[in-house]
Design a protein around this nucleic acid. Structure first.
Lengths: 202, 202, 202, 202
DNA sequence: CATGAATGAGGATTCATTCAT
DNA sequence: AATGAATGAATCCTCATTCAT
């Protein structure tokens, strides 16, 4: 089992492109290899299975996002700013790679067996972070009292809905969505949660 | 190709249960037949393919939901009440069948080829309805001005997020989620969209 | 999983022929199917795996042989006659199917994992029977005292050596071997090779 | 193609250990390399293929055994002593390496194609030697008249049966088997099993 | 000579779908 | 219409072997 991280990235990124085009299940290992410009066998020098590639795509994304949450939690910035930062960072990443965004949305529940477990675990961890963020806001008086276990997934979903919208609407409208997304969503979320519902996040 | 609707339902409902348990791709036609208490071959007297079963599950759901929208649009009730009615109806259906809810969320993007097209089309249609609902609210002064193309999917996502939350959190907590969902989500959505953000939907 | 025993036999016998020709490992599932005049998939309606076919070949043989031992044990015939009967029966079966004989010899240790375990278990069971047969002979005064745990496998091996010999020597000499085998082996086992040995088994 | 005999031995011996553990077919070239403490590629500097390693294991063994026969044939010792010497030498080698013994028994028929031919050829050659040994005994009046083409493989098998017995019975009983083997087998071969046989080989 | 990552042919197994009964 | 055994295309993954470093 080889471990060169550059080649792992090569394969992972090729996989992202093909998964985005055809979906995880419809993608054959050969196609990933072709896209990466390598032989099929090489894939299996770097990943245990096709499913593991998918998992590693999610892991990498979640690690980064969770990392952001944790660094913000330590940074002492206000909850209001944390929301801003997170939304900006999130959509910046999405803008970077439409393919990645597509895969993250489409294949969220496509793991099965061990991989499915691992992916569910990651999502739970992610939600825990969001819950904590909201709870901090409530405790600090920035946000109204609410059921965090319910609001957290709702926020998570709202943010991801932009991806979904972009996928469903024609290609030409995708850019516009992403550009306006942070502002619009912030307004939606904030006005819904602000203690006295006074104004948007801006 | 036989058309007895009762048997079609038998098969469709069996499929919903198995898809919920194992996911669309991991489900074999044989398993659906077993669950329905019939032979594999019989499935193909009522559906062209496994994918068509999935499509028909979505079609039925979307038809019902879209029907509700349309009847509400003609009924002349206020936008505020329309939201109420839609959320109630939606969660009533979810409460009826957790399995159905699970399938609707998980398999949203699992169609490929023709079936994928058909499913995307349905979702677009659904969003159109929601957009129209919001636009009506804005035009009537009930809702603040917003980008409907963006807010519509967000609302759609918020509502579905409850399903996702229920799936990710352990079984024991699922009941509680569903019980509180309509109230909590209404508050979230309404306070976020109401023109002067004055109070919750209730 | 279908269970028609006739078709199971069809497949098993086809497998015996191909295994004899090419060896277990060099035989592709497709070849067995072709030989049986069916499609590959059908094999897997009747056997869990290629290895299971091999196991089932051995099981059937061992069951028959063990059955013979058990019926002889209950029959009250002398040990001397038991040897006679067993040798005759054994070589009669071999004469029936050279392919089967070949497979039984060649693939004795080719199982691995679970199948390997199962095959080793069968051989142990077989040896137990032979040990018991010899012990009875010793207890009854027909045979000299000896280490049954050692002599049993030796006898087992002697009998099987005829197969091996037939495999190694050219085809034309195979018939002759089998015809003379029971007599010659009985003499060897009973009296050894020393010039002044007492007499053959008859 | 390198020819350092020390490294060839290193590889061959590593292969013997792994073949004994997992069987020839289940052993990957990589595992042999690991066991030998070298890289996979190195194996192919010393052997043409994995099958060639197996062949070379057999060749070495057979050469030694055949050499023994030939030196005995020239030495003028009695047939009775030749048997003694051969059995002692054989079991001495077995005692030295259980792994080797295991491989010799298990993989006897696992060659295919050219390697299979070569291995069969060696076994034929071996049997020729044994046949000659027996024939000499018969001609010299030491052994009773018998069908040498049949008795030779039987003797060969009897001796190897000890390996098989050791493999099938649990590890703890293996030592005991080997210690008593020469005596017990000599008795069996020389005098058979009949109660009134004349006497053991020594 | 040694290395070990890259290669890609090869094969077992699966499973949606068909169709003879 | 119902059945379920038969079909065989499809695909993941393995692993012996090569060869650039």
């Amino acid at each position: 089992m080889a471990t060169d991280p550059a080649k792992q990235d090569l394969i992972r990124n090729a996989a992202i492109r093909v998964f985005a085009r055809k979906g995880f299940h419809a993608t054959r290992a050969e196609e990933i290899a072709e896209e990466a410009g390598i032989a099929v066998g090489t894939i299996y020098n770097y990943f245990e299975s096709k499913a593991q590639i998918l998992l590693s795509i999610f892991e990498r994304e979640f690690d980064e996002e969770v990392g952001l949450y944790e660094s913000l939690a330590k940074s002492g910035v206000s909850v209001r700013e944390r929301f801003s930062k997170i939304l900006s960072a999130h959509f910046a990443r999405l803008a970077e790679s439409r393919d990645l965004a597509m895969v993250l949305v489409r294949e969220r529940y496509n793991g099965s067996g061990e991989i499915g477990e691992a992916m569910a675990k990651m999502q739970r961890k992610m939600l825990d972070k969001i819950e904590k963020l909201i709870q901090d806001g409530v405790d600090g008086g920035w946000l109204r009292t609410c059921n965090v276990r319910m609001v957290a997934p709702a926020l998570f979903a709202v943010v991801q809905s932009i991806n979904e919208a972009a996928m469903i609407y024609p290609e030409t409208q995708q850019k516009a969505f992403l550009a306006r997304a942070p502002e619009e969503l912030a307004a939606l979320i904030w006005s819904g949660l602000a203690h006295d519902a006074k104004g948007a996040l801006t």
